[in-house]
């Protein structure tokens, strides 16, 4: 009897002040948003008594600049963000400005390359791997049976089909990683020369490029160009499901490999509740959570070990193939130099 009362008291105390944990995430993907709302939030509440609050952002850079301002203003605790989804240049900026708390201790469930460098920035435990992304291209089997599977093959294809190919102009994320396959396959100058060679045969003679991946998707879906591309291996399956791509679309990668990276979770230096943040990270990076996300959202399963035999989307490549072809991102410095050179020697070239 006494215990029951104590239990009720604790419950009441718990109700009076629910412990919150805030997760800053990019919210452009409706399926992911819904999963967080309908699955993660109730589970996190039931398992750990935490109320999950999603802090939505259009760009992760906004979170980083918010943290930098907070640091400058001396707000060292009580931030509205406990966990942030981050990688690449945002991580570099955040780490350099010292707005992350760490190192974070987590079991090493991911392949070793996930712990070393993030776009060339040494991680040193300041963020912990969450999901992975890999570059794939898509074509429509209703238009032609086989796509070119090498960089040289693609250049030849583009020259044979003027106006049917383009890519988002770097520094757009996907267009930028597309050009880096030329860098890796043909070297700095060779890669630029091949991109320059392709230019007059691109959509609109290469005089203009799509600014966003959404524009590229639209051109592809409207049959103005023959290839789409994305840093998400299941993007074509998602688009088919959503009804923006025809069901005959499939994806492919270059035989020489395709660039991949990991994205990470980090804790801001002024998080309101570090313990809650770590609890959330432990949940999000658990094998069960990642398997569930892979099953329900079609995401790749990023951790070590054999393929758990998940159901794949119709247009998604098998995990073994993607893993076999994995190429790490070049260092951020070289990446920036290549983007600059692309601008001078391809975009502005006459």
């Amino acid at each position: 009897m006494g215990r029951a009362w104590l239990g009720i008291l604790i419950l009441l105390a718990g109700c009076a002040k629910p412990r919150e944990v805030s997760f800053a995430m990019w919210t452009g993907d409706e399926a992911r948003n819904r999963y967080f709302e309908e699955v993660v939030t109730p589970e996190v509440r039931a398992k750990y008594g935490l109320t999950l609050r999603i802090v939505p952002y259009g760009h992760t850079g906004e979170v980083v600049s918010k943290l930098i301002t907070e640091k400058a203003a001396g707000k060292t605790s009580g931030s509205s963000v406990d966990v942030v989804w981050i990688n690449g240049e945002n991580f570099r900026a955040a780490k350099r400005a010292g707005v992350l708390w760490g190192p974070i201790e987590m079991p090493r469930l991911y392949p070793d390359e996930a712990y070393g460098k993030d776009f060339g920035t040494p991680i040193e435990g300041m963020e912990t791997p969450w999901q992975s992304a890999q570059f794939v291209m898509a074509w429509d089997t209703a238009r032609f049976a086989e796509p070119p599977r090498t960089v040289d093959g693609l250049v030849a294809w583009v020259k044979a089909h003027p106006g049917r190919f383009t890519y988002p102009a770097p520094p757009e994320f996907s267009g930028s990683v597309f050009t880096r396959h030329f860098l890796l396959a043909k070297g700095f100058d060779g890669g630029l020369a091949a991109l320059r060679e392709m230019k007059p045969y691109l959509w609109k003679q290469g005089e203009t490029y799509p600014a966003t991946i959404a524009e590229l998707d639209r051109l592809f879906a409207n049959n103005e160009i023959d290839f789409a591309m994305s840093y998400g291996p299941s993007f074509a399956s998602e688009r088919i499901e959503r009804g923006t791509f025809p069901p005959t679309v499939r994806t492919f990668v270059f035989d020489s490999g395709t660039i991949g990276n990991y994205n990470y979770l980090a804790v801001p230096f002024n998080a309101s509740d570090r313990e809650a943040a770590l609890t959330l990270i432990r949940d999000l990076t658990s094998r069960e959570r990642l398997l569930d996300m892979a099953q329900k959202l079609g995401h790749t399963f990023p951790q070590k070990g054999p393929d758990p035999g998940l159901k794949r989307g119709v247009a998604t490549l098998p995990m073994e193939l993607l893993r076999e072809r994995f190429l790490p991102e070049p260092d951020a410095d070289e990446l920036v130099r290549f983007e600059k050179a692309w601008r001078e020697r391809v975009l502005l070239a006459r």
């Binding site: 452009g28 993907d29 609050r53 802090v55 939505p56 979170v63 963000v81 966003t212 959404a214």
Partner: peptide, 22 residues
């Protein structure tokens, strides 16, 4: 700080990802 979520904030994400229907 992302705590006060308004319509434009909800809209921007979908516009960027090209989910035109939403």
């Amino acid at each position: 700080g992302g705590r006060v979520v308004t319509l434009p904030m909800a809209l921007v994400g979908y516009q960027q990802s090209g989910d035109e229907a939403v």
